[in-house]
Write a protein that binds this DNA or RNA. Sequence first.
RNA 1: CGGGGUGUAGCGCAGCCUGGUAGCGCACCUGCCUUGGGCGCAGGGGGUCGGAGGUUCAAAUCCUCUCGCCCCGACCA
Length: 599
Amino acid sequence: MNAPVLAPGAAENVTSSRRSPTMRWSRTFIFTLRQDPSDAEVVSHRLMVRAGLISKLATGIYNYLPLGWRVLQKLQAIIREEMNRAGSSELVLPAVQPAELWQESARWFEYGPELLRIKDRHQRDFCFGPTHEEVITDIVRRSVTSYRQLPVSLYQIQVKFRDEIRPRFGLMRGREFLMKDAYSFHSSADDLDHTYRAMEEAYRRVFARCGLSFVEVEADTGNIGGSESHEFMVLADTGEDAVLSCSECGYGANSEKATTGALAPAPPWPLESPAAPKPVDTPEQRTVDEVASFLGIAPSHLIKTMIFETDTEFVAALIRGDLEVNEVKLKNLLGAVHLQLASEQKIEQVTGAPQGFAGPVGLSGARIVADETVMELPAAATGANRTDTHLVGVVPGRDFTPVQVADLRRARAGDPCPRCPGQLVERRGIEVGHVFKLGTKYSSKMKCNFLDHEGREHPMIMGCYGLGVGRTAAAAIEQNHDQRGIIWPLPLAPFEVLLVLLNSDQPDVVAAADRLYQELADAGVDVLYDDRSERPGVKFNDADLIGFPVRVVVGSRGLADGQVEISLRRDGVKRMVKLADTVAEIERLLEQLRIHLEA
RNA sequence: CGGGGUGUAGCGCAGCCUGGUAGCGCACCUGCCUUGGGCGCAGGGGGUCGGAGGUUCAAAUCCUCUCGCCCCGACCA
């Protein structure tokens, strides 16, 4: 059970140290910070910088220092094993990619400023790859032509670059970042599904092996496009994404995607129902709450009319006053590439009234779409498209007819589950993995075709699977830390064991620690030897800050009784062990930690 | 992209308002001392005060421009 957990890099180091131990703190490049960096907001960022794992070079761009790189290497080793197990082959693609490929897929035009575009000396356009669908599709179309050669599954671990609007939180949301991305190509949807399930399983195994608590949720496919998508979220209060999950069944979804069961209907319409909508003066009453209390009705009796603009048109999205529009759902319904709320001036231009008084009745300058719950209202109030005026007694279907009716609601905690009688709960999560069924979006544009058994040509059906390496390491820290520092899960720790030498001025103590280090190295233990002549407090604090799972202390006090002290970072319990039994005891503890992880 | 803030030694900061020879803590170097939770004493090195221009006898300090960085916002009629 030893071997699979060790990274190849780590194993090499251990092997070489067998001959001449070099994993001495004094000879490595580890520098911790006594003070918190002034710019770190979240724990993982703060601790990674303080512990000397990373340092910042520019906004959203970090150096991976030796200790941090060991963590990432171990994580990569786990990812490689699981990807290989899932039948994917590793390769490495260029970071810099020619514009032509991106123009073929049209993403050169669709991608915003997030795509870092660069020119070479001949003024030819390139970009620094934020992802690699185009490149991989190009590779596969050059070589694969027959259904007999499918499926194909390829992956790489690569540095990517996305020029984020606002990079923050260290490795959590950097501009340059390390990512594992995989792509698969198929001759049928069933075959894609097979690989997709295998990838989901691989991801579950990766995160479980890292000792992380995570959930898999349904996700929106976003700009990448496709039919089915799941995200893997490490649960943490500092997570940037909201996930909704059912307390009863297994349903879970990104808040962009989440649907709800039937919502409670609005209370009975409290006013008379005129044969036609009646204009009512509502001076300065703009918000849902203002208008509702002014008219003496419930917020759910109001039809909120939100004016959006897409690349091609204006859209009036109707939603019950007590609910909110989910822009992602709206965007998908419209098939729009860009969608944003219209500015105040544009609202006036479209509706003829200032913000707060828009309504669907008689509105002609915008495409009207409505949430399902709007159409269920027997009567409602809306803006009148006139300053300080609302219409009361509007009947959906009679007084206006939307072009489309769909689920446009944002699901919220407490809403009924769409699959069972349970309720949805909301939690924060860090997106560490994302799998997509892409379909033929790229293959058809880029003519990545194959011939079926009857000799007919079809575009290949694709899947893509991303896993943020740096972000997963950061998420591990968000989930595993205390006041003193990081508490690494064993599989991700830069070293599994830290051997601490105290009393470096006493030759017999040094000799004992040196000997123990040699023995541990010989036994293949992943150990770092803190041989510095620092004071004990400094060493202990560094050990806690970096978070080595096992700490072994050799000092004159214990040595007087022929003993050393062993403790686990997780519980801090100190136990004295005979010098002669130390290696065996450490191996026993490590084994225990591994078993603990399986459970 | 909008708003706010900030840039002074490797790190964390004061000094700026009210212009007059650049400071503190940590880190670093030397010596002594000390060694089971960030010792102690003494001595020492290190900064064109982000950059450019301007005002002034004199600018870290005031003015203009510029660059970097940080925070908030760009989510609801």
